[in-house]
Design a protein around this nucleic acid. Structure first.
Lengths: 158, 158
DNA sequence: GCGAAATATTTCAACCTTGAAATTTCATGC
DNA sequence: GCATGAAATTTCAAGGTTGAAATATTTCGC
């Protein structure tokens, strides 16, 4: 639950549309997240954060540092620690000490992790297609572009 | 952290744009949320969920049932219980038994709660204006409309 | 009236999340 | 070499979140 699900007080003029946009943006992503969470649990006994970590690692066969994961996924360090811990104990992920710098550890998907992720990823894409099915491709592209641009102005990333 | 922050496998053609849209939607709302969370903590020692509950109650001077709050804010019952508990112990919210149905309790903002919320709401709107400042009003309106429509097709609500 | 189903809420375990403090290791200046 | 600060990670407390089970109350059929 997140700030802005509710329209509030409207004491300045120009921000009305932006406030409404924020509310809708939020409600939309909350509903999609909620649906994805439910399906991941039902079909794979997993969660969204686990899926995200596995997706990041899938794209990086050489592995990632904990801090890479944290930065890439936009979450805190401590958060990543817990999620990776659980993935390790399930056998989907492994931590390896690096020689050269003993502070860091390289995190990679295990073979089992790669297989499981691919099973999930196939279905996941269909789910998104399903849930966003009413947005036609042109709209998706425009919306996408807007979101990309407005974001990058106060945070320098893609 | 949420499913889709990472582009995954692209085995079907049509969903490519939608998947990208979803990723950007998510990253955008995550960044805004994160910024709002930080500011609410810093300036009001509060949180987003607390703000949302107070906003909902502000619009309903006659009060709301726990289940109304839950439905309106799109979160679970048990979740609302905890947040309201903490707001009550801070003196911002009160629970009142209803005669007629002893299962339910009416939740309202206290006077102190109303004042505190209004303080927050004023600044909150400016923050949104700030964070979404790069979206001009016309774009905001279009984006808003898209978000509204694509959502309502698999969930019946505004 | 009474028992069964329905409704409103709370409780609970498990997980997610943050931000700050603690830990371990490395790099740098001297 | 060695102290000092920087960097990577973990730990921890507090709060948020869900879904399922437990409680309490009402409603309804009979």
């Amino acid at each position: 639950m997140v700030s802005g699900l509710v329209a509030t007080i409207d004491h300045r003029s120009g921000n009305k549309e932006r406030l409404l946009l924020w509310i809708r943006l939020l409600r939309a992503s909350r509903m999609i997240e909620s649906e994805l969470r439910e399906r991941l649990k039902r079909d794979f006994n997993s969660t969204l954060p686990r899926f995200d970590v596995m997706a990041a690692l899938f794209r990086a066969p050489e592995g990632m540092l904990m801090s890479d994961l944290s930065r890439f996924l936009l979450v805190s360090n401590g958060n990543v620690t817990g999620i990776v811990d659980r993935l390790v104990s399930d056998g989907f992920v492994s931590r390896a000490r690096r020689d050269g710098d003993r502070r860091t550890s390289i995190v990679t998907l295990t073979e089992q992790g790669r297989e499981e992720f691919q099973r999930m990823a196939r279905v996941h894409e269909d789910w998104i297609g399903d849930l966003l099915g009413d947005v036609d491709e042109a709209d998706a592209k425009r919306l996408s572009t807007m979101l990309k641009s407005f974001r990058s102005n106060w945070e320098g990333e893609t």
